[in-house]
Design a protein around this nucleic acid. Structure first.
Lengths: 124, 124
DNA sequence: ATAATTACCTCGATGAACAAGGTATGTAGA
DNA sequence: TCTACATACCTTGTTCATCGAGGTAATTAT
């Protein structure tokens, strides 16, 4: 693939990711039976997508703090047997509402794109 | 809906949009039988999504120029019987390649989200 | 000792969307 | 005629987000 397309692809990937950050973090934390923590989330996401969707720490930690400040997550510190202390996260009722909003929007966007592509004669 | 969720929703919508901009523009222009132009694209997109996905001029025109500079679109000026001159756009072979890249990425993201949600016990 | 892994965080550079404002043409009505 | 509106394009500056780079610190392995 030539250089221009390469650049374009990277840009597209990056932009596509952005909207999904909070959404996926809320989904991940909300789905865990036991409270989880930042480092674990980052590694899980990376391995889960075969390394294609990796979120750097500089991105994830600020968003986790932001979600906490907004009352979507609640946190507490806990010990670890294998390393330094961990900050655990749990989703709150308000967080579940926020997740539902993301889900609704995601469905809308998905339909919009499907319709547009169908209209454009592209099969998905 | 309370204020915090409202703000969060707007942020999510905005971020979700961003990755779709070039993708939808390429899809729209690539699917038109006849060459189209900026003002028309903007209005079509707005009406097509029931006003929910509107792209302001300050967003669309720079992207159209950017796509042209990258060789994904070719342009020419033409007259209009009902107003000022129009700048028409057509997709190039390179532009079709770029579109295919977006499409592939879109499918990947889509699957990733589906998997994650399924994993989180959420039905889409 | 020292390197690697685990685990958290902040700062600053870069870059994107878009509100706001600008230019200009054609048309319809008063 | 002139004035308001719709059409049609563009640029600038503000704002805000990502994330690379760097820092701190605990545990374990060599």
């Amino acid at each position: 693939m030539d250089r221009d397309l390469e650049v374009f692809k990277n840009k597209f990937e990056k932009e596509m990711k952005s909207g999904l950050l909070s959404f996926l973090l809320l989904a991940t934390i909300g789905s865990e039976k036991d409270p989880t923590y930042g480092y674990r989330i980052i590694n899980n996401l990376a391995s889960y997508s075969g390394g294609r969707y990796s979120l750097p720490e500089g991105t994830v930690y600020p968003i986790l703090n932001q979600l906490s400040e907004r009352g979507f997550l609640k946190t507490y510190w806990g010990d670890s047997k294998t390393g330094p202390r961990r900050k655990y996260y749990e989703i709150t009722p308000q967080g579940r509402k926020a997740f539902e909003i993301c889900l609704k929007e995601w469905k809308f966007i998905n339909e919009l794109v499907s319709d547009m592509l169908k209209n454009a004669g592209v099969e998905l």
